[in-house]
């Protein structure tokens, strides 16, 4: 399989007037096309920082990041942050508008996505009229609209309650797989990571370095909700739990 991303010795230092903080250190890994990688670690360890750097929102201090040529990146944030003054369709078109890529063809692609994922009846509604799960789907379609090759998901379900979260992660997973995207997902939810990812990177507490990488191999791997029933699930949970420095 071709490699879509190579990271070598990534390092990030935050400067404030009083202090400097080493947030990420010695972070290297390679990712194949179509892979689903989850990054887990104790809260505040710098997981989100890594995504922000990959997306170009923050500068790295040191190290090398190499995407395969012409790789387009999509970023999905903790909250759906839909614009309440735009309709569902206009929200989905936001990225295309900004990149001056809005034309008949790209618009049709978005309409097709809305249609495929059960939102065509709502394309002229405003976000406050949508349920939490639907809003999350709209946010995903907004990210997919620019047709990215790799998706960066920053705790995408953390704002949802538990039941919705299960259903939505199942939903989002199916959409991502059927669109054939590579994914890096940051989460603090171990079960979510195991049920969705092919590989899990475990980070130490700050400064974030790679503590261990697990390949997740489940029998009858299918959708996240089903994966939770796999017999290896509890085993992985146990293994990963031991690796993470949770402090109460």
């Amino acid at each position: 399989m071709t490699k879509i991303l190579k990271i070598k010795d990534l390092r990030k230092i935050y400067h404030t007037k009083r202090d400097e903080t080493l947030a990420v250190d010695n972070f290297s890994f390679t990712m194949s096309d179509g892979e689903f990688v989850a990054i887990v670690g104790p809260s505040g360890c710098g997981k989100s920082t890594i995504l922000s750097i990959l997306c170009g929102l923050e500068e790295k201090t040191d190290g090398e990041i190499k995407f395969r040529e012409n790789t387009k990146i999509g970023y999905m944030l903790q909250q759906d942050s839909l614009f309440e003054w735009r309709t569902v369709l206009d929200n989905c078109l936001l990225g295309l508008e900004i990149n001056h890529n809005l034309n008949e063809e790209t618009k049709n692609y978005v309409l097709k996505l809305l249609n495929t994922y059960g939102l065509s009846n709502f394309s002229n509604s405003y976000p406050p009229n949508l349920s939490g799960g639907m809003r999350q789907r709209v946010a995903l379609i907004r990210t997919l609209a620019t047709n990215p090759d790799i998706l960066l998901l920053d705790e995408p379900f953390s704002a949802l309650d538990y039941q919705t979260r299960l259903a939505v992660s199942d939903d989002v997973f199916k959409i991502i797989k059927s669109e054939g995207k590579s994914v890096i997902m940051v989460t603090h939810d171990l079960a979510e990571a195991i049920s969705m990812a092919d590989r899990i990177i475990i980070l130490s507490k700050r400064p974030a370095t790679i503590k261990k990488i697990f390949n997740i191999e489940l029998t009858d791997k299918s959708t996240p909700i089903n994966n939770r029933k796999a017999k290896e699930f509890a085993h992985y949970y146990e293994l990963i739990w031991k690796e993470i420095d949770y402090h109460v």
């Binding site: 997306c55 170009g56 929102l57 970023y75 944030l77 903790q78 909250q79 942050s81 614009f83 003054w85 936001l94 990225g95 508008e97 900004i98 990149n99 620019t146």
Partner: peptide, 29 residues
């Protein structure tokens, strides 16, 4: 203005002008 919405605009590589007209003005209405 909501920092996450701002981050969203930046993740699309929006210019300052685009952030102003597409986010700042409507959200401050």
């Amino acid at each position: 203005v909501n920092p996450i919405k701002l981050k969203l605009m930046q993740s699309f590589k929006a210019t300052k002008r685009q952030i102003y007209f597409k986010l700042l003005l409507p959200s401050n209405f």
